[in-house]
Design a protein around this nucleic acid. Sequence first.
DNA 1: TTGTAAGCGTTATCAA
DNA 2: TTGATAACGCTTACAA
Lengths: 341, 341
Amino acid sequence: MAEKTTITTVARHARVSRQTVSNVLNAPHLVRDETRARVLASIEVLGYRASQAARQMRTGRSRLIAVRIEPTRDGINGSVLDRFLHGLTETASTAGYRVVLYTAADDAGEIATYDELLASHDLDAFVLTSTHRGDIRTAWLAGHDVPFVTFGRPWGAQPEPGRGGGHPARQHGGAAEPHAWVDVDGAAGTAAATGHLLAAGHRRVGFIGWPAGSGVGDDRRAGWQDAMGRAGLDVAGLSAGTSDGIDQGERAARDLLALPDPPTAIVCASDSLGLGARRVCGAVTGFDDTAVAAATGMTSVSQPLPEAAGRCVQLLRRLLDRDGPPDTPEQVLLAPRLIVR
Amino acid sequence: MAEKTTITTVARHARVSRQTVSNVLNAPHLVRDETRARVLASIEVLGYRASQAARQMRTGRSRLIAVRIEPTRDGINGSVLDRFLHGLTETASTAGYRVVLYTAADDAGEIATYDELLASHDLDAFVLTSTHRGDIRTAWLAGHDVPFVTFGRPWGAQPEPGRGGGHPARQHGGAAEPHAWVDVDGAAGTAAATGHLLAAGHRRVGFIGWPAGSGVGDDRRAGWQDAMGRAGLDVAGLSAGTSDGIDQGERAARDLLALPDPPTAIVCASDSLGLGARRVCGAVTGFDDTAVAAATGMTSVSQPLPEAAGRCVQLLRRLLDRDGPPDTPEQVLLAPRLIVR
DNA sequence: TTGTAAGCGTTATCAA
DNA sequence: TTGATAACGCTTACAA
C-alpha cells in the first residue's frame, strides 16, 4: 500500500504551504494562476482527495444526507421508493453529497434515529418520504434546526374524523411553519385518468381509494371528483374507501358494481387496488405505474420520480449551500403523466 | 441550540479526565466499576454521542459500508434489490455500521467510484451485487486490500463462448483468490420448480432462461436439467435462451410449444420471462417471487433476501472487527423457497 | 486505575 | 498572494 496522500504531501510536491493547497480547493480566487496550476497538477499526479473526516471536523458539515428505506409493503408500490432513491443518489452525488440509509419502525423510532444520526454522524440533512396527516417528524426536525425536505407535501395536523366530503385534501392543514417539499400532484393524476375514461365514452366512473383522512388518498379522490364535476356528472355513491391491497380492490369493485346504477369504469388510488378491481371490471386505471401495471397492461398514473428526486436535492442545496439566513422554503408540485395502455 | 456535547463536557460533568470517558466507551474493563457507572450516568444525562468524524480521524475507520443502487431495469426484478437493501441497512445498523449508496453506469465506472469513496470517505467495506462472469470489480478491490462481500458468487473469468451443455455453472471458474460471498442456490430453486411441475404430472418440462455464459442463468438452467435427469427425462431441445423481458418470454415459449413434441410446462429463469410464457402456456414457474408473480398468481422461486443481507453483514464483520490477520474467506449458499400458487 | 501529551488532516485566523 | 499557528473531538502511548 502506498503512503496516504494528504494535503501535506501535495504541499511538498507543489512546493507551497498546506494552506495554499487548501485555498486552491476552497477559495481558488485567492491563489495566483500560476501557483494554482502547479498545485492542481500535483493534486492530479498524486491522486489526492481531501479527507471528509478531517474536513468535517473543521467545518462541521458531513456532506451526508439521510433517507429512510422502508420495508416494501406489498411489493407493488414499493418500487416507487426504489426509483426515487436511485435518482436521489445520482443527483446528490453530482452536488457532492452522499446518501445514507436508515430504517425505522414508526415515526417515533424515526425521530430517535434522527437524534442518533445527528449526534454521531453530523448529518447535514434529511429527506423524508411518506408524509401523512399528524406527521410528527417535521416539527421535530424544524424544532431542532435540522435542514430537511419532504417528498410529499404536509397534510396537516391530526386526521380529521368527520370530514367526509368536500376537498379536504386541498387544504394543507395549518402546518405551524411551512417547509421545503416536493410532491406530485395526485389529484391531477386521477383527474387525467378520469378524463381518459370519460373520453372513452364512460359516464359512470367510480373511484376506489383509501378511507378519508389519509392526505394522499383524499387528494387522489378529489382529482376524480373534480373531473367528474367538471363534466357535469354525479358522483354520489360512486366512491369506495378501503385499505390497500389486491383483494381489497376486488371487493370494493364488486360492491360498486352491485349498485343499482353501477359504474362502467373505475379509477383507483393504487396499482394494487386497480389490479383487484380489474378482476371484475374491464375499464380500470391504477396509480404509480409500477411493474405490475406495465406487465398486466393496466393504464396507470406515473410519477416523475427522477425529477422529484432532483428537485429534493435542489431544495436541499438551497438550504445547505448558503451562509446567510435560510431562504424562505420552496415548494414544488410536479405533474404526473398518464400512461395509457 | 444547546452547547455541543463533547467528551470534555462529559469528563467535567463526571469529574474525571477525558481519557477516562474514552476508556469507559472503548475499554470498559480498564475502569473501576464505580467510576464507570458515574461516567455512564453523565453520558446518559447529557445525551452524549462520540463524534464519528473525530473517531474516524484517529482510528481510520468510518463505520460506513457502501452499496450500489441500480436503476431498476424492467421494474419486475428490481424490487429484489430493494428488499435486500432494507435488510442490509437494518442488520448493519445493529452492528454499528451505516449504509451509503452510490450509482455507477458500468463496472469501470464503479471502480472509479470505489477510488473516490475510499479516498475521501474512508469507507470500511463494499457490498457488491450482480456478480457476473468477467467481473473486474472483485479483483480491483482485492488488489487494493479493500474488504468486501459479494451477494452473488464469483462466476469465473471470461464468458466462455463455446460452452453449451454440461453444468458449466457449477464450476466457479478459476477465481484467482476466493473471497467472502453470499448467494442463493438458483439451481436448487429451479430444481424445486421442476420437481413441482413433475409432481403435478408433467413429463415434458421446458426451460426458458438467458443465453449460455451468464453465470446466474447457467446455474438456473442446470437446476432444471438436473431435476429432469434425476427423473430420467430427456431435455433435448427443451431449453431456450433469450434476453430478459415479458415479450421475449412469450416468444421463447411459442417456439418451444411449436416443437414436434412440445413441453406441457415451462420453468423460467425470471418472473418477467415467466409472465410472458404464461400468455401461451398454462403451467409456468417464475423466479424471484416479485410482486408481479404474487399479483398474477404465478408460482415462483423466492430468495431469502433479509437473511442474505444479514449474512453479508456477518461476513463483513468477520473481515472488519478483527485485529489479527483476516480469516479465510467464508462463503454462504442459501436455499431458496418455492412459493406455490 | 487514572491523567497527561501528542497527533490524526483539515480549514479559519491572522501576520508577513 | 502566501505561510505559520491554532483548533475541531477523539484515541493511543505513556507517565503518574
